[in-house]
């Protein structure tokens, strides 16, 4: 946490003397030869390092996708900056990173007063509760009087307060800065309940000594639309990140995958031809190559493939598509068309 204070003081210092970097983020990224992407310090399924020290996860794949779109398919040109909940937004405001893909909840305050823009929702989440099985709790409404561990500076902290207040329940908050310390405090019995986004609860449960001794309660108490964030004031960059996201969704909708993208370039379907840059100049219009989405899909696949690979039923997290399915399958993901 010393480093986080340093980061904040750094933010303050830069705000005092330096003019924030201006427009042309795309040019800066090209000049630097790499995309600076802010990610979670370690959340399995979203952003974590494997045994070889390589970053992987749903948010990490978004960093790779953007890099692939810019650097003609080279998804290795990413510099990952792991950030705590408190550090993430100042780091972006401060131009220490070009894009933030760190399971960040889209709220009105963050979108309007902080000089930032959310580009879309890459994961629909909601806040849940985890308790020890031997407490015999089956509903969050039975939690009155409990001690609750929560990470500081998150929307989670606010939802928790609102939920207990709305249901006239008492609780005792234990608020700790780093999620790993929050998890440790829960595991050692400092609190009865651990609360964070449901996806985070599943990831955390995997890391506990005896995952079977913990249950996740059925209630989801909030809307947590998580998505990538960029700075305000650079419309071109905003468009690039936004349309890489929409492109990934459109690719899944049109059935374009990592394996068949080459064949699909010969497709007669005009939607696919536009997506892959065979027809039109959609890539050039946002400052990229026309085959930008071919590069992206060859690197990371479509949205569905990203989901399945990192958090889906075949991974240890075992999360169903649910709200995160395409609108055609009863989910919430709905991308504007490329035309």
């Amino acid at each position: 946490m010393n480093s986080s204070i340093k980061a904040l003081l750094g933010t303050a210092a830069v705000a005092l003397v330096a003019v924030p970097a201006s427009a042309a983020t795309l040019d800066d990224v090209r000049d630097a030869g790499q995309l600076r992407c802010g990610v979670n310090t370690g959340l399995p399924g979203f952003a974590s390092q494997n045994d070889q020290g390589e970053w992987q996860g749903l948010d990490v794949d978004y960093c790779k996708a953007i890099a692939a779109a810019i650097f003609e398919g080279d998804d290795s040109k990413v510099e990952y900056t792991p950030l705590s909940a408190v550090q993430r937004l100042p780091a972006l405001q401060n131009s220490e990173i070009d894009v933030l893909a760190r399971n960040t909840t889209w709220t009105m305050t963050r979108d309007t007063t902080l000089g930032l823009n959310f580009v879309g929702v890459n994961y629909y989440d909601g806040q849940g509760f985890m308790v020890r099985e031997d407490l015999n709790v089956t509903s969050a409404l039975q939690l009155s009087g409990a001690t609750v561990c929560v990470q500081s500076g998150t929307t989670t902290e606010l939802n928790l307060t609102d939920y207990f207040r709305a249901n006239n329940m008492e609780y005792n908050p234990v608020v700790i800065e780093s999620q790993s310390d929050v998890n440790a405090a829960y595991e050692q019995g400092r609190c009865d309940v651990l609360t964070t986004d449901a996806s985070g609860l599943y990831a955390t449960r995997l890391e506990l000594a005896n995952p079977d001794e913990h249950v996740i309660l059925p209630e989801v108490i909030s809307k947590e639309p998580l998505g990538p964030v960029v700075r305000q004031g650079d419309e071109q960059w905003f468009s690039i990140v936004k349309w890489v996201h929409f492109g990934l969704l459109n690719a899944e909708e049109l059935g374009v995958t990592q394996d068949n993208v080459e064949e699909m370039m010969d497709s007669d379907n005009p939607s696919i031809r536009r997506l892959l840059g065979v027809d039109g100049t959609f890539g050039e219009d946002i400052g990229l190559e026309n085959d930008w989405m071919v590069n992206v899909i060859e690197a990371v696949g479509n949205y569905g493939e990203i989901f399945e690979r990192n958090v889906g039923p075949d991974t240890p997290l075992n999360i169903q598509r649910g709200m995160n399915a395409l609108w055609t399958n009863g989910g919430l993901h709905y991308a504007p068309p490329i035309r």
């Binding site: 904040l8 705000a15 408190v86 937004l89 305050t109 500081s152 902290e157």
Partner: peptide
């Protein structure tokens, strides 16, 4: 570090909720 709600801990929460670093 241990979640004692002193000035820096609370300030951190305030900072992150409001963005007024």
């Amino acid at each position: 570090a241990v979640g004692y709600p002193e000035l820096v801990a609370i300030g951190n929460t305030v900072l992150n909720q409001t963005g007024q670093s």
